[in-house]
């Protein structure tokens, strides 16, 4: 149960966004641009940044949701485990590793990103836009994680919920679902 009365029975962030469509609109728009818009990073790579930040912020709902999305986009549980615990040995390009290091530094605090982290990413071929988007995705998930946990939002335990959510996030994306029935399906996970 969230700390405030919501106008719906949806879990996690989805219940918060549906409860306040005014503040949700720019957050959804920003997320859709960053995670699904035109980019030289794949959708899975961008979801990995969201997942590592959520994991480090210990936000269970967001970690489960974006881990399921990484898997739906072709990633594996093994890849996620290495990214969480042993990033340098993950089966990822040097560029992606260097961007995930930047994302992890942003999670700590903005000033933790040092010139050497940027140098490493640029040396591995990262463009300014890739670095920009990495920092902003990591910063955005510091918002989401705090919003979800700071409001005490409900976190379902059933893995089927996250598979259903991931199926939506890999098709419709982050725009507000127009189909009320899609929301009803997710509301049943109480």
């Amino acid at each position: 149960m969230a700390y405030i009365q919501l106008n719906n029975g949806l879990p996690g962030i989805t219940g918060l966004l549906e409860n306040r469509v005014d503040t949700a609109a720019p957050i959804r728009e920003l997320t859709q641009i960053l995670l699904r818009g035109k980019s030289t990073l794949t959708e899975m790579e961008r979801e990995l940044i969201a997942t590592i930040v959520s994991f480090k912020n210990e936000c269970r709902f967001c970690t489960k949701a974006h881990a399921a999305t990484v898997i739906a986009l072709g990633g594996s549980k093994e890849l996620l485990d290495t990214v969480y615990h042993d990033l340098e040995n993950a089966q990822l390009s040097e560029k992606m590793k260097s961007l995930l290091v930047i994302g992890s530094k942003v999670q700590e605090i903005g000033k933790a990103v040092l010139p050497e982290h940027i140098e490493r990413a640029k040396k591995a071929g990262a463009t300014d836009k890739e670095i920009h988007d990495t920092v902003l995705i990591a910063a955005l998930f510091c918002l989401y994680n705090r919003y979800v946990d700071g409001m005490g939002a409900y976190c379902p335990e059933d893995p089927a919920y996250y598979q259903k959510l991931a199926a939506r996030l890999t098709t419709i994306g982050y725009d507000r679902p127009k189909d009320a029935m899609a929301r009803k399906g997710e509301e049943s996970f109480k």
Binding site: V106, I109, G110, V113, V135, A139, C142, G150
Partner: peptide
Amino acid sequence: AASFSMFNRYVDGLD
């Protein structure tokens, strides 16, 4: 508070 935890990181993370 959550949003400024984003804005602050965006501003300082890119120095």
